[in-house]
Simulated assay, not measured.
Amino acid sequence: MVCVVCVLLLGVLRCVLGTYPIWWSLAVGPQFSSLASQPLLCSSIPGLVPKQLRFCRNYVEIMPSVAQGVKVGIQECQHQFRGRRWNCTTINHTLAIFGPVLDRATRESAFVHAIAAAGVAFAVTRACAEGSVAVCGCDSRRKGPPGDGWKWGGCSEDLDFGNMVSREFADARENRPDARSAMNRHNNEAGRIAIADHMFLKCKCHGLSGSCEVKTCWWSQPDFRTIGDYMKDKYDSASEMIVEKHRESRGWVETLRPKYAFFKPPSEADLVYYETSPNFCEPNGETGSFGTRERVCNVTSHGIDGCELLCCGRGHNTRAESRREKCHCVFHWCCYVSCQECTRTYDLHTCK
């Protein structure tokens, strides 16, 4: 089914590539796997604007971490939307890895831009702290007076550097005076703010027999799943905007303002969008929808992952599926576990 839809999508991809951040394709397929094993030629990365190309040449050793960050962001997107009609599917063998879905200024576009920008900041910051990149390291400013019962130690992660890389690279193409660039810049920054808002003190005890005579702490990023969960909440509460045009010295400029004045205006940490999402029920080459036919649904759920909503009222099919699993596991002293292998039958529900 996906291959058939991919064929439908190919006809509109040329229109998409004009504004599409196709450097995201670094995160999937053979491009990603080759980054760590071959010298990187910046000019060979598709879709880089001049500012990104200059950044790549100046910080070439950071580029594998940039690609890793986009990959982490895509994987988190697919986890968060696994039970939704749009499940963050990527298309192989094309530069526009999400198809035309992100060509519209929808909630989905807002989330993907935010989680990708956050992923780049996260991966670069982590690589610096781990010593994988020579041009950066720990946050040297995290020194000074200790806290109550602890002192600064370890390697505080330098999120400012990671954010700088994300801002310089991910935002490089968002310099047009139009509404879409304004939306993308806002959502990219919201993704980076999400990490800053979840930084925490991570501590380690030192002393004999595990005592905590001395406790050293450092500033650490959270697990990226925490960021994904937070950004998914932001997706659900994203603010709808309207586009306004006004003339400045540089010409006509588009800006965004909240559509509903009686709602609280969005903060820098909120996601914004200004176009309505398709319902993603049926395949549509123009919108990039794959539809939900053959998707696995949860027959007991009344949420969006349930068979009624996910299948868009078309109903579902049920078939038995056998799986081989470990069973009758026994712990033996000392120290291993032995298990048998059993065949169990489950009901699998898929959308019609």
Score class of each variant (00 low, 15 high):
1 M>A: 15
4 V>A: 11
5 V>L: 08
13 L>A: 03
16 V>C: 14
17 L>Y: 11
21 P>V: 05
24 W>F: 11
26 L>H: 02
27 A>K: 02
28 V>Q: 13
35 L>D: 06
35 L>F: 06
35 L>Y: 08
39 P>Q: 12
39 P>I: 01
40 L>Y: 02
43 S>C: 03
48 L>F: 11
49 V>H: 06
57 R>G: 06
58 N>I: 07
64 P>V: 05
68 Q>T: 13
68 Q>L: 14
70 V>F: 02
70 V>W: 00
70 V>M: 09
71 K>P: 00
73 G>Y: 03
75 Q>R: 09
80 Q>E: 11
81 F>K: 01
88 C>T: 01
93 H>E: 14
93 H>M: 11
99 G>Y: 02
101 V>M: 08
103 D>W: 06
103 D>H: 15
103 D>Y: 10
106 T>Q: 02
106 T>M: 07
108 E>V: 05
108 E>S: 03
112 V>G: 02
112 V>S: 01
116 A>P: 05
119 G>V: 00
121 A>I: 01
123 A>P: 00
123 A>R: 01
123 A>Q: 04
125 T>N: 09
126 R>S: 06
128 C>D: 00
132 S>Q: 14
142 R>S: 07
146 P>K: 12
148 D>G: 04
151 K>Q: 13
156 S>M: 02
157 E>G: 04
160 D>E: 14
160 D>R: 13
161 F>C: 02
164 M>T: 13
165 V>L: 04
167 R>M: 13
167 R>L: 10
182 A>W: 00
191 G>P: 03
196 A>E: 10
199 M>T: 08
204 K>T: 06
205 C>Y: 04
205 C>G: 08
207 G>V: 09
207 G>L: 06
209 S>D: 09
210 G>L: 07
211 S>Y: 06
214 V>L: 15
215 K>R: 15
217 C>G: 07
221 Q>T: 15
226 T>F: 00
227 I>D: 01
228 G>A: 06
237 S>W: 04
249 S>Y: 10
254 E>G: 09
258 P>V: 03
258 P>Q: 08
259 K>P: 00
267 S>P: 00
276 T>W: 06
280 F>V: 05
282 E>Q: 13
282 E>S: 15
285 G>I: 03
288 G>Q: 00
289 S>W: 01
290 F>E: 02
292 T>M: 04
293 R>G: 07
303 G>C: 06
307 C>R: 02
309 L>S: 14
311 C>A: 05
312 C>G: 01
312 C>A: 03
313 G>W: 00
316 H>V: 04
317 N>I: 11
325 E>D: 10
331 F>N: 06
333 W>D: 07
337 V>R: 10
338 S>W: 04
340 Q>H: 14
342 C>E: 09
351 C>R: 00
351 C>L: 08
